[in-house]
Amino acid sequence: MGSFGGMEILIIGLAILLFFGAKRIPELARGLGQGMKEFKKASNEIKKELEEGQKEGFDSGTKSEEKEQQKQ
């Protein structure tokens, strides 16, 4: 089992063309592109929130340590 060769890709492409038709393929590609765009946007937002949470956790951790040192 390896990667797809040229003939396999051609057969898959023809099957998709026959199954969906020439008019629907651009619509499907557009929808797929929009879906990928939304997924990337959501994953970037999650990464940003995680990074902000880590910064806040780090900042609050250093403030706690400073307060403890002042008490001593």
Rank of each mutant, 00 (worst) to 15 (best):
A22L: 11
E49H: 08
E52T: 12
G13H: 09
D59W: 10
E56Q: 06
G57Q: 03
A29Q: 01
E27F: 03
S3I: 07
M36H: 10
F20E: 08
G2Q: 02
S60H: 04
K63C: 01
F58H: 07
Q34P: 00
F58R: 11
T62M: 10
E56G: 00
G53F: 04
E65I: 15
L14C: 11
R24C: 01
S64M: 13
Q72T: 02
E56P: 00
A15Q: 08
E8N: 01
G13L: 11
G5D: 13
K71D: 10
A15T: 10
I46K: 13
L50Y: 15
E56I: 05
I16E: 05
Q34T: 06
L10F: 14
K48H: 04
K47N: 12
G21K: 02
Q70S: 10
F19H: 11
F39N: 07
F19R: 11
E51Q: 15
Q72A: 07
S60I: 06
L32D: 02
M36F: 12
F39R: 06
G53P: 00
P26G: 05
I16C: 08
I11G: 02
K23N: 12
Q69H: 10
I12A: 14
K63Y: 05
I46E: 14
A42Y: 05
K63L: 15
Q69N: 04
E27K: 04
I16T: 09
Q54S: 07
E8P: 01
I9H: 00
G2F: 05
I25P: 02
K55Q: 10
N44M: 12
G35D: 09
E56F: 04
E45V: 02
S43H: 01
I9C: 01
G57F: 04
M1P: 13
K63G: 00
F58N: 08
K63R: 14
E27N: 02
R30Q: 13
K40A: 12
G2P: 04
F19E: 06
Q34N: 11
S43W: 02
G61E: 03
K47M: 08
K41R: 15
S3A: 07
G31W: 07
F39E: 08
P26W: 09
K55V: 13
G33I: 10
G5T: 08
K40Q: 09
M7L: 11
L28D: 01
L14V: 13
Q34L: 15
K40M: 12
L50S: 14
L14Y: 07
F58M: 11
G35P: 04
A29F: 06
Q34C: 06
E65S: 13
G61I: 01
F39C: 05
K41W: 00
G5C: 07
F4G: 06
L50I: 15
G61C: 05
Q69L: 15
K71Q: 12
Q72F: 04
A42T: 10
G13V: 14
K23V: 14
G53V: 01
L18W: 03
E49W: 05
E52R: 14
F39M: 11
G6F: 11
